[in-house]
């Protein structure tokens, strides 16, 4: 995407701020500047809407991950089984 600059914010900064907002880690000043940028920048508006939709989908999926301990236990079991087969 060609970089466009509106109100001290260029597109890469706007995208970065949009990403941070998905995790509630963007500052207020940053967010206001991003909103001004979005008023004039169509591609960034599209990026923001796509990004927000992605966040909504991830939340909706209620994905879970396995803990490191669980993974370690499985790995140990697999390694032991492989070693047993090789010996």
């Amino acid at each position: 995407m060609p970089k466009r600059k509106f109100f001290i914010f260029d597109c890469s900064k706007a995208e970065n701020c949009c990403d941070k907002s998905q995790y509630n880690e963007a500052g207020t000043r940053e967010k206001i500047s991003m909103l001004f940028h979005l008023l004039f920048c169509g591609p960034c508006r599209k990026y923001t809407s796509r990004n927000t939709k992605l966040t909504r989908l991830i939340k909706k999926s209620k994905l879970k991950t396995c803990s490191e301990e669980e993974k370690k236990a499985w790995k140990n079991r697999i390694e032991k089984e492989i070693a047993k087969k090789e010996s």
Partner: peptide, 19 residues
């Protein structure tokens, strides 16, 4: 490649199984 199964597929298998 069984040595990579846990890293690559455990989350997928877990989400499939838990529901």
């Amino acid at each position: 490649d069984p040595t990579k199964w846990v890293d690559k597929y455990s989350d997928y298998l877990f989400n499939y199984a838990i529901v």
